[in-house]
C-alpha cells in the first residue's frame, strides 16, 4: 500500500511536471514582434548591413521563418543567435563576439581614444609654458640682420592685425 502510494505520487508529480513544462513551452505561437526582436540582432551574410528584421529578400524571409520555428520550439533568443553563428559564422551578429581575437576590435578604439586624451594633455601642458622662455633662448645670439628681420616681422604682424580688424 505504501509502495503503491509512492508510485502514484511519483507518477502524478511527474505528470504534473510534464504538463506544466509543456504549458510553459507552448503558451501561444510567437508573434511577429517576437520574431523581429531576435531578427533585429542578426544580419544575413548576403544582404550586408541590412538587419534581418527589415530585409526584404527571400533568403531573409526564410531565416525569419526559421526563427519563428525555433521560438515556437521553446528556444531562447541567445540559443537562436548561437545556432545561426554555428551555421554561418560570427558575421551574422550585429557586432563581433567578445572572445579571442575579437577583443582587439573593442580595445583598439579605446587605446586610440586614450592616446588622443594623452596628446591633448601634452598639448595643454606644453602650450601653457610661457612663450617668453623659449623666445629668450632663441633670441640670444642677436645679429644686426636678425634685429632687422625681427623689426620687419613685428611690423608685418601689426599690419596683419590691422587687416584682421578690418576683415
Amino acid at each position: 500500500m505504501k509502495k503503491l502510494f509512492s508510485i502514484l505520487l511519483f507518477v502524478t508529480l511527474f505528470a504534473a511536471a510534464w504538463t506544466s513544462k509543456a504549458a510553459a513551452q507552448d503558451p501561444q505561437p510567437p508573434s511577429d514582434d517576437d520574431v523581429n526582436r531576435v531578427a533585429r540582432q542578426l544580419f544575413c551574410p548576403v544582404c550586408e548591413n541590412t538587419p534581418l528584421d527589415v530585409c526584404p529578400t527571400e533568403a531573409c524571409r526564410q531565416w525569419r521563418a526559421l526563427i519563428r520555428e525555433k521560438l515556437a520550439a521553446g528556444w531562447s533568443d541567445e540559443q537562436i543567435k548561437q545556432y545561426f553563428v554555428e551555421q554561418y559564422g560570427a558575421r551574422v551578429l550585429s557586432e563581433p563576439p567578445r572572445q579571442g581575437w575579437y577583443w582587439a576590435f573593442y580595445l583598439i578604439p579605446v587605446v586610440l581614444l586614450l592616446l588622443g586624451v594623452y596628446i591633448l594633455y601634452r598639448a595643454f601642458t606644453s602650450m601653457r609654458q610661457p612663450l617668453s622662455e623659449s623666445a629668450q633662448v632663441e633670441a640670444a645670439p642677436e645679429s644686426p640682420a636678425a634685429v632687422e628681420t625681427q623689426g620687419q616681422q613685428d611690423y608685418l604682424r601689426r599690419v596683419e592685425e590691422e587687416l584682421k580688424k578690418r576683415n
Binding site: P51, L93, S94, W101, F105
Partner: peptide, 22 residues
Amino acid sequence: WGVISPLISELLTNQKVTVGPP
C-alpha cells in the same frame, strides 16, 4: 574603425565580421 575593421578581419582571418548600429 567601424568601417575598416570588417575589411581588416577579412584580410587577416578570411572571416568577415559585421559592425552594426550597437
